[in-house]
Design a protein around this nucleic acid. Structure first.
Length: 485
RNA sequence: GCCCCUAUCGUCUAGCCAGGUUAGGACACCAGCCUUUCAAGCUGGCGACACGGGUUCGAAUCCCGUUGGGGGUACCA
């Protein structure tokens, strides 16, 4: 059984630079951070760029940026695994010298042929038993002749038990284990060697990573034991699936942190959502502050089953954070979206008022930005479709002009005063308040729904608001519709 | 093929380890309330222990099997 996790811990998040931060990776980073924050210690960021063909600086920077945006904090790093290649190679040489690894001259083609032959007749393939080992003398000769070769780690012939933090004891029978390559024929270390060396050198005590690594863990444990005398604790997190119950892919929607950011999701919401996807505090809390999560977090409560990424719930959480975050917090994230709708340099006070009025009813930043546009328009465009109803009311234009007149005459242009003035006009004119309220909203915002009308009226400002009213009255007069019947 | 993991409402999950609950919460959905609109909010509803065997007075909970899903099986990470 998995032992209780105690601190301080040294944990790490080690993504490979693929060009974006996958939400599964982001969640792994979050759990590592939560573990570190709750138990003390250090969280280190390490970029696994061993596969040079697939890595470059821009990709690394993008991952670092995305983590920063999400708000995951690190105490050390980022370190580049590629910069430690010499240390990795030295470790391989040491294993070689100690007889814990050996040279292998089989070509990829040879290996593949053998594998399909064995698999073809229904047997299970293992390099170890599939090939005969050359004599020491033969090895030396071929080495001297400069024949291309790889270095393989000699896996101890025994079952390996992974004492997994989230799954408990997982046993891999000796027959299922094989000797694997640690140095490629070009002399570069493979992933398995590199992770183990780095985790060892960086003093990592707990490895929290995706379930796709569970089957690799016996290899790593073999290496840890061969190279030193401590093995970190492991915990393997379930995968995140798409709505099709398959591994989350672009086919079923967004998969990266960057995509959600661009969709107008606020980082606090994504963090909260991801943290709760596969972990729960044990009670009914779902909307949790970071500090609250740190306080409640224990690795023992990590879930074991794969979960489907539910965009609806993320959006719900996002809506929550949109209205609960400080106004400045929202404004900071909103900037790029404002730029998209042409609101780059606008009056800050006016913007703050408008954003505060609309953020509660927008589910994301992308929706919030356009909602705020009318506050900065000299002329509100009126959609002919939406105005049909009002164009049939021949009495309306005069009433709107009168309302504008009264608004101009108000001593205090407040929510209460504009409200009272409109209702009084309605009463005097023997129409319902709604008869004036709806066209007023449309006049000032071009929309038929939005914030409480008089909040909107005041936020719009006396000058702008009354001008909109009069302009709308004119519009109605110029585009009347005869009521049928 | 072989190895490993896994299975509670449509979705995320609590409950399981220390068997006895009307199987709880949230998202979504539906209805109602509130209301100048749209949201929000509030109230209620719908809705699950994959299947089959055991063990037991009693099984979501323990054991075995089946089926489904996932991962691994590389000179990818």
């Amino acid at each position: 059984m998995a032992t209780e996790t105690r601190g301080p811990v040294r944990v790490r998040f080690a993504p490979s630079p693929t060009g974006f931060l996958h939400v599964g990776g982001a969640r792994t980073a979050i759990y590592n951070e939560l573990l570190r924050q709750s138990l003390g210690g250090a969280h280190v960021l390490r970029i696994e760029d061993t596969d040079k063909a697939r890595s470059d600086d821009a990709m690394t920077r993008q991952i670092v940026d995305a983590l920063g945006w999400l708000g995951v904090q690190f105490d050390e790093g980022p370190f580049l695994q590629s910069e430690r290649e010499d240390a990795h190679r030295a470790a391989a040489l040491r294993l070689l010298a100690e007889g814990k690894a050996y040279h292998c001259f089989r070509t990829p083609e040879e290996l593949e042929a053998k594998r399909s032959e064995i698999l073809g007749r229904g047997d299970s393939y293992r390099y170890r038993t599939a090939f005969e080992q050359p004599s020491r003398r033969e090895v030396e000769e071929r080495l001297e002749a400069g024949e291309p070769h790889v270095v393989r780690f000699r896996m101890p012939d025994e079952a390996i038990v992974v004492d997994d933090i989230v799954r408990g004891a997982v046993t891999f029978p000796a027959e299922s284990l094989d000797d694997f390559v640690i140095l490629r024929s070009d002399g570069s270390p493979t992933y398995h060697l590199s992770v183990v060396c780095d985790d060892m050198d960086m003093g990592i005590t707990h490895v929290l990573r995706g379930e796709d690594h569970l089957s690799n863990t016996p290899k790593h444990i073999g290496l840890f034991r061969a190279l030193g005398d401590t093995v970190p604790a492991f915990g393997h997190l379930p995968m995140i699936l798409g709505s099709d119950k398959k591994r989350l892919s672009k086919r079923t929607g967004a998969t990266s942190v960057e995509e959600f950011r661009d969709q107008g999701v606020v980082p606090q919401a994504l963090y909260n959502y991801l943290a709760l996807l596969g972990w729960s505090p044990g009670d009914d809390r779902e909307l949790m502050e970071r500090a609250e999560m740190v306080d409640a977090f224990t690795a023992e409560r990590l879930g074991r089953t794969a979960s489907i990424f539910d965009v609806d719930k993320l959006k719900w959480m996002n809506a929550h954070y949109m209205s609960r975050l400080t106004l400045d917090g929202i404004l900071g994230h909103l900037e790029p979206f404002l730029a998209e709708v042409g609101l780059s340099e606008v009056d800050v006070d006016r913007l703050r008022t408008a954003v505060d009025l609309h953020r509660q009813r927008a589910k994301d930043l992308k929706e919030l930005a356009p909602a705020v546009v009318p506050y900065f328009l000299d002329v509100i465009p009126y959609d002919p479709e939406r105005t049909v109803k009002f164009r049939k009311q021949s009495a309306l234009p005069d009433l709107l002009d009168e309302l504008a007149r009264r608004y101009r005459a108000l001593d205090d242009y407040t929510v209460e005063a504009t409200d009272a003035a409109l209702r009084q006009l309605a009463e005097e004119s023997e129409v319902k308040a709604g008869f004036l309220i709806h066209p007023t909203r449309l006049a000032m915002s071009g929309e038929k729904a939005g914030p409480p009308l008089f909040d909107l009226v005041v936020a719009m400002g006396r000058e702008e608001g009354t001008a909109h009213l009069e302009r709308f009255a004119t519009f109605l007069r110029e585009h009347p519709i005869e009521p049928e019947g």
